[in-house]
Each structure stands twice: as structure tokens, then as C-alpha cells.
């Protein structure tokens, strides 16, 4: 099938305002507040510069690069948590962002209560969560701990619960930001099995990982970001090799740039 890509980045640039309004003082505040709201003339930190790539339906895609390369920013843009400063991003299908496991988990609530809360925060209705609760609890495999407050859990245990909810979300595009490194070996295997099952069902899988082996074995393609720009976008194993070659060079990632000029482009989003 030659379909349209499910994720399409077209010369995407993302600039963060590098100084907060609270630093400009009272007079500056009054004069710069309107421009500030319009994301205007303040100095900007460019986290992504002119990034373009496509992800096809059903692909297992990795975003790799050194710390601060812009990987999390890329996922946040796909998830529409943020808007690009310029360029367009198109996504097709229901995007499920797993930028963090157990978003909104509350330490004083029990595991069971947190499952409902987390499921709803990630986009399920209560009815949908309830229908899946048995299966979620089974996947998490926490036994009697499920009715204990979350603050009594170990880090791995809350991660298991978070991942158990996540794999029941029924997404078309699943975004995962460095969360598979948690949990013991058997649980990791369970997660990878589930990812492969998703893959068979045609779910697109986009992940950020610092685990080169995992990228090599689980992903089809990858993009290597370096200082906010696309360094390479190709088959996963080639990109990982290039990443390692890049790491061995004395100078990694050009220093982040600060842009003084107001950016011309207008944010533009389309969704189909």
C-alpha cells in the first residue's frame, strides 16, 4: 500500500523563549507583555531547526541524539502538546503520547484508583477504563499491592502500572519517551512483546531511547538529531552506527544557537 505518511514534519522549527517574563522588571513587563504573548521579539532558543521527516504507517521509528538534541521536543510536537514556531506537522490517526509513565499518578491513591485517573488523563473515558481494568491489572501483575497507596510502591512497580495502562490505550500512533528502561527483565520482555503485537496490528511506534541495542533490534528506521537539526534519517542500524561515529568525534553537537531576530514564520497546524 502506498499510503500517506502518518507523521509528516515539514521544515519544522521550534524556538523556546529563552527568558521568562518575570526577569524583565516592572517597566519591561508592561511594554513587552503583548509582544511576549505573540511570542515576539525576545531572544529565543532554537531547539529544532528546519526538521523534515516522514513516518509511514506501521513503522517502528526511533528518534536518537545526545542530551538536548531535541528528541523530547520532537515528540511533544507530534503529540500537539506544543506548537511549532514555523513549519507544519501533520498526523493521521489517534496519537497517544507516553512522554512519561503514570502521568498524574497520586502517591496517596491506591494502584487501582490511579489506573482510572491515569487512563482518563491519557484520553480514555471512565467506561473504557472500567472495561479494561481487569486486563490492565493482570498485565501489571502487582498482586495484592494493587490496593495499597502508590507511595508504598518501588519505582519499577509504579512504572509497571503506568505501562500497563499505556498498552491498553488503543492508539494509532504510540509515542514513547525513554520509558522502557524501567522494570525488570521479564517485564521488559512483556513490553517488547506488546510493542511487537501493536506493530502487527499496524500501530505506528515512535520512540526516544538512549539504548542503541534496543533501537537496532526493535526499530525499522531512525532519525538522528544533532543540535536541533536532522543529521541523518535512514534504516535504524545505519543511523545507530552513524550516531556512534558522531559520538567519537571530538566536537559533538554544535553549541545551541540563540536567535535575536524575530522569526518570520507563523505557526501553522493542519490535522486530518
Amino acid at each position: 500500500m502506498s499510503e500517506l505518511p502518518v507523521v509528516q514534519f515539514r521544515s519544522v522549527t521550534k524556538a523556546y523563549a529563552s527568558r521568562a517574563l518575570s526577569h524583565v522588571g516592572a517597566k519591561g513587563l508592561i511594554t513587552s507583555f503583548p509582544t511576549y504573548l505573540r511570542q515576539g521579539r525576545s531572544a529565543k532558543f532554537v531547539a529544532l531547526r528546519d526538521v523534515s521527516f516522514d513516518i509511514a504507517r506501521g513503522e517502528r521509528f526511533a528518534v536518537i541524539g545526545v542530551n538536548g538534541a531535541g528528541k523530547s521536543t520532537t515528540l511533544a510536537l507530534i503529540a500537539r502538546v506544543m506548537r511549532p514556531t514555523s513549519g507544519t506537522i501533520e498526523t493521521r490517526g489517534h496519537v497517544c503520547p507516553l512522554l512519561e509513565l503514570g502521568a498524574g499518578f497520586h502517591p496517596d491513591l491506591s494502584g487501582r484508583e490511579n489506573v482510572t485517573l491515569n487512563g482518563v488523563l491519557l484520553g480514555m473515558t471512565k467506561r473504557e477504563v472500567r472495561a479494561k481494568t481487569a486486563s490492565i491489572l493482570d498485565f501489571a501483575g502487582l498482586g495484592t499491592f494493587i490496593d495499597e497507596p502508590l507511595r508504598t510502591y518501588s519505582a519499577g512497580m509504579s512504572a509497571r502500572l503506568g505501562f500497563a495502562v499505556a498498552v491498553h490505550l488503543d492508539p494509532d500512533i504510540l509515542l514513547v519517551d525513554e520509558i522502557l528502561a524501567v522494570g525488570d527483565a521479564s517485564f521488559q520482555k512483556k513490553c517488547l512483546d506488546r510493542i511487537n503485537e501493536f506493530h502487527k496490528r499496524g500501530v505506528t511506534f515512535v520512540m526516544v531511547s538512549h539504548d542503541s541495542n534496543m533501537v537496532r533490534t526493535t526499530c525499522d528506521r531512525a532519525v538522528l538529531l544533532n543540535g536541533g537539526s536532522v543529521h541523518m534519517c535512514d534504516r535504524a542500524d545505519r543511523v545507530v552506527d552513524e550516531y556512534h561515529r558522531l559520538l567519537e568525534q571530538p566536537r559533538v553537537a554544535p553549541a545551541p544557537t540563540v536567535e535575536q531576530k524575530p522569526s518570520e514564520g507563523k505557526a501553522c497546524l493542519t490535522q486530518s
Binding site: 503529540a79 502538546v81 512522554l99 502521568a103 498524574g104 488523563l121 491519557l122
Partner: peptide
């Protein structure tokens, strides 16, 4: 207070 949620989910 809900920064973590806002940064990571789109509800």
C-alpha cells in the same frame, strides 16, 4: 502545580 501533566499530556 500540574506542570508535569501539562508538559506530557494533551488533555
Amino acid at each position: 502545580a500540574n506542570a508535569g501533566l501539562i508538559r506530557r499530556t494533551s488533555f
